[in-house]
């Protein structure tokens, strides 16, 4: 599948048009729109009616996007191209992004780490447990802020396996811990450990590394 991409200058102009004429779908690429609209609109409606909290809306939206635009359908090359996400935000689903965030150009195109559709896709990618159900299950208790932390720190490249393992082991650890912000602490500690250690080469591989990571914390 090829999704078009747009550069900043085009995005800027198109966004201004949205601001002037309303954040409604203007008719581009009906096929893509048809793919996205129904499932995403469901989620956005539940968000607007307060049935979904922000975090749940983001997770569910991410799951939808990840299923429609899975890595083998679009390629990581496209997924890491902000231009694609800008296009989707402005041309294909402006009404849906608007319902979630309002008139915030950062979420549509301006700040590459905050484009909503991109963020939620990558969050799911980094948390993916093999299927939707298992993924949804382990993501239950996190907050929007936590998504932000995970995705915004791309560094020189995400450690996908490591992230997925951390997300997987997190619920068990969370139940043992009294600290509210446990995800953040783990990630913080992880960033310090990673300087010297490569998880896949350590004892027990990535799984062992993550287990030790959590254990170290609970022992302190």
């Amino acid at each position: 599948m090829i999704i078009p991409h747009i550069v900043n200058s085009v995005a800027e102009e198109a966004y201004k048009r949205l601001q002037q004429t309303g954040f409604s779908y203007k008719g581009a690429n009906p096929e893509l729109r048809a793919m996205l609209y129904l499932p995403l609109n469901e989620i956005v409606k539940k968000f607007t009616s307060k049935e979904y909290k922000e975090y749940t809306a983001d997770i569910e939206a991410g799951l939808v996007l990840y299923s429609l635009f899975s890595p083998d359908k679009i390629g990581l090359r496209s997924a890491s191209d902000e231009g694609i996400w800008k296009y989707l935000s402005i041309e294909i689903a402006p009404d849906l992004v608007y319902a979630r965030w309002g008139d915030k150009e950062n979420r549509f195109w301006k700040e590459k780490r905050r484009i909503w559709l991109k963020t939620v896709w990558w969050f799911i990618h980094l948390s993916w447990q093999g299927d939707e159900e298992s993924t949804r299950k382990i993501l239950q208790d996190l907050t929007t802020d936590e998504i932000v932390q995970l995705v915004e720190r791309a560094g020189s490249g995400y450690r996908v396996d490591l992230n997925r393992e951390i997300m997987k082991q997190l619920p068990a650890y969370r139940s043992k811990s009294t600290h509210r912000d446990i995800f953040r602490v783990v990630m913080k500690f992880n960033t310090a450990r990673l300087i010297a250690t490569e998880p896949s080469f350590s004892e027990g591989g990535t799984v062992g590394y993550v287990r030790r990571l959590f254990n170290s914390l609970s022992q302190r």
Partner: peptide
């Protein structure tokens, strides 16, 4: 012919 987008073919 309502506004129809021809995807910018990446290739």
């Amino acid at each position: 012919f309502p506004v129809e987008n021809v995807p910018a073919d990446v290739k």
